[in-house]
Each structure stands twice: as C-alpha cells, then as structure tokens.
Design a protein around this nucleic acid. Structure first.
Lengths: 242, 242
DNA sequence: GTCGGTTTTATACCGTAGGTTTGAAACCTA
DNA sequence: TAGGTTTCAAACCTACGGTATAAAACCGAC
C-alpha cells in the first residue's frame, strides 16, 4: 500500500486507482467483433477482458486508452474513438476498488491488424466468458454504436476507405443486427451528403454480376457525427447541408 | 498527504481523487437554467461551480452524485439522472489532479425547490464566470440534452406532470433553443404514443382564449428513452409501439 | 456468339412523418 | 354583443424511407 507522491489526497478526498478500457469493434466476415485478450492470472484466469490499463499521473484518460491500445493494435487503424461510460461499482474488481472509464473504438472493415498472442477478435453475438463487468460494458458499447449508426455518421468509421454499396450494407447489417436494404442505404446516405461516388469501379467480382461503383464517405463529413434531429426547422436541418 | 486504508494502490496503479458533478437543468420562465453554487474559497473565489463532491470509498458514482445533490435540492424532484462524461485533464484543478464524472439531471418545469444561500439558477445562455472546466461541462450537457430531446423521450423529465401543449412547447423551445410549432409537437408526440390526454382542462387562462386540454406523458414511456432510429424495418420501429 | 444466371443500379410507387397554413372553437374583456 | 386571444382540428404538401420492379452490366456455359 503506497501513496503516489504526485497525487493529492486526504481523508476527505479519497483516491482510487483508475483504469481506461477500450471496446474496439470491427466488422469481420459480415459479423461484428470485439477485441479481447485472455487473462493469464487471477482473478478470472482464462476469461477474456477488454484491453486497458491503469491511468498514469500525467495523462488524460483519452491518452491512456490510446497508450494501452497501442500495445494491441496499430492506432493508425482506429477510425473513431469516443468516451463511453465510467463504471464505479465498488465490487467490480475483487482485488479492490477501481474506477474504469470505457471508450468505444471503431476499426474499418477490411483491415487485419497484427495482434499479440493473447489477443483475439470475438463475435459480439457469441462472447466467451468475460472478466469483471467487461461483458456488460461491451453491451453498452453495442447499444451506443447501434443508436448512433442511424442518427449520426459513425458508419464511416466501420467502413473501408472505399467500398461498394453492397459492402457498406453488410457492414451496417452486421453492426445493427437487422436487415437493411441496399437501395435505402444508398439513397439515405447520398441524400445526407455523407456518401459520394469515387468514379471508379470495383474489381469485377469473381462470380459474375454487374461491376459495382465505388463510393467513399465525403471528406466534409468524416468527423461529423451530429445527430440528425427531428423538431428542427427544415432550413436548418443537418440533413440538408448537401 | 495521506493514504486511505480502504483503497488499494501501488506505484503501478496510481490513485486519484474522484469527484461526481451534476449538471441539473430546469426550464424556468421559458429559459433553460442550470443549478450552480458560488465558491467562497480559492481557487476561483466568487466563480460559479457545479454541485458535486468527492467520491467516497464505498459508494457508486451514481450514489455519490445523488448524495451531493441531496444537500442542494430535494432528490424527489429529479425526474432524470444519467451519466454524462468523465473529465480527466491533469490540469483541470489547480490544487492537484482530480478526475470528475459529470451527470445530467433534469427537473420538471414548475417546481421551485428551496436552495441554499450560495446556490442559484442561471440561464445557460448567459452563464456567470465558472470555475474549473465546469462551463465546458455545462456545454456538453446542453449538447446531450438537445440531441436526446428529438430522438428520445427525455422531454417528459423537463415537463410538469400535467401540461397543455402550449406549455410543453415552451419547454421544448427553451431546451432546444429554436422554435417548434405546437401543432407539430402535439402530433408527433401523440403518434409516438408518449403523450396522452388527461381529459381535464387547464384553468381558464387569465387573459382569455380557449381553455387548453391537459396532457401527461404516458406512464409506459416514462423511463423509456430509446432512440427513434431510422434504418429499421417498420414492424420493429419504436415509433410504432403504440 | 448467344443464352441464362448473377449482381448492381435505376426507377417508380406508396404510406407516412413532419412542416405549414387555415379556419373553427372556446374563452375573456369591453 | 363585438372584438381580441388562445387552443384545437383539419387540410395540404414536401420529403423520407420501405418496397417492388425492371434495366444494366458482367460472367460462364453451351
């Protein structure tokens, strides 16, 4: 039991170890997966946990989660990272109390980052036994992603830099968990102005069929995840910003 | 500088004081207000701060924010409380590092809770000088509220238990910051099934005009704040659950 | 080369959400 | 009773998004 010199504490202001966790999601083989690593030590030996680790004295939570993730995947491949929620149940870690702040990270489909031996992708629909409250945190991340997919532009972070409508559809279907028609997806995203054709064609698929046009997310919308709200005068609705 | 016996720490797992903050919002006189208290001591003497205080060893963040709030307003009047975000900038408190988790609380219009002497409501559109990063946290809360107002049912937490459409409109206008027509509001909320007429009439207004019908939020929707998503097969769209 | 088979794209149709306008209904005060 | 004021209801209209159909473009087999 130590005190860390750089941290300011008193009986009136108790201090707690804090960790940053990352729920990194990617669509792989038409299914949504989450990045987990397998614990080698107690507690929860053999169970799968979210990447993460302790917050250090001079770093932000955002910097911390980025640092922890860097040891698992290349950060360059993270197309989106946002704070999700903070868990503070005193009993969430049997070794002692820790507060954990979870982040939601998204990796575009198609990438296949090298992973350490203890780390693997797992389908969110069939999670292995998870450690601590990490299973429930994955559930929160799923809920957040699914909600934001329909009223924001986060979809771009799950899609490869260039894609056909059919490919984009499989990404949305995998992430949302229910069916979406390609026609609709194309029309909605085109009208919102978040999608634009590249002019090029996809490689003529191996098994016949008309070659697909390649699209990309409009650069102007890349980091825009404003909600597409109702209750707004039409002249100001974000839907219409071309 | 002390160590708190109940907390588990080591050089590898530094500990940090953690505080819970509350952004409590209410529509008062057709304007959205936030609850702030005025600091009497350094730092930021005289500046206004969010209610909050230290997380204690055995409490959840949710319990902590509720405990801190109880000293400012009656908790009974809080119609909604949700976790907002966690701030971890090492320099956010000049006295030393603290991590803060902010919550968003909503109080229905019409209530006028008794407040301590140092505490007061301030219009979010004209904040006084604020302490720490609290001004920016209020901004985050505003963004969250405005986004959720249009695609969830949080509106009920800002409205009195029973209200006319006109009253509800002023609540929405104040919270959203832009105009909304009463006709539209009524039709949308009725169709979503979150509004239902009480059958009673409002007190005949002091200055003439047809007496308004009283409405309330349907009990089945009181704690439901599911997003009203697009990209969903119509048979399952939450819009249609009555 | 021609004929399916396959996949993508375009077009059309349609119910409905939501923005807007209008007018009637119901109350007050003068 | 007339005029002002506010609420409510109905109608209209644009556009969104669900659905279906047909056309376009490629492949492979014959």
């Amino acid at each position: 039991m130590h005190c860390v010199a750089s941290v300011w504490s008193s009986p009136d202001r108790p201090a707690f170890p804090h960790q940053a966790l990352a729920v990194v999601l990617q669509v792989r083989a038409a299914r949504l997966h989450v990045l987990l690593w397998q614990r080698a030590n107690a507690p929860f030996v053999g169970a799968w946990a979210l990447p993460g680790g302790p917050l250090l004295p001079d770093e932000t939570l955002g910097a911390s989660v980025a640092r922890q993730l860097a040891s698992k995947v290349e950060l360059r491949q993270l197309a989106h990272l946002e704070q999700l929620e903070t868990r503070s149940d005193p009993g969430r870690d049997p070794r002692g109390r820790t507060v954990a702040t979870a982040y939601l990270g998204l990796i575009p489909a198609g990438l296949d980052p090298a992973l350490p031996d203890d780390t693997a992708w797992h389908p969110v629909a069939a999670l292995p036994p998870t450690a601590f409250d990490h299973g429930s945190i994955v559930g929160s991340a799923l809920g957040r992603l699914r909600a934001k997919l329909s009223y924001t532009n986060v979809g771009f972070a799950l899609a490869p830099p260039t894609f056909t409508i059919a490919e984009l559809r499989t990404v949305y279907v995998a992430a949302l968990g229910y069916d979406v028609t390609a026609t609709n997806l194309q029309r909605v995203l085109l009208r919102r102005g978040v999608l634009e054709p590249t002019g090029e064609m996809a490689h003529p698929g191996r098994s016949g069929g008309r070659p697909a046009m390649l699209y990309r997310f409009a650069s102007s919308s890349l980091e825009v995840t404003d909600p597409f709200a109702v209750f707004r005068p039409p002249s100001e609705r974000p839907t219409e910003r071309r």
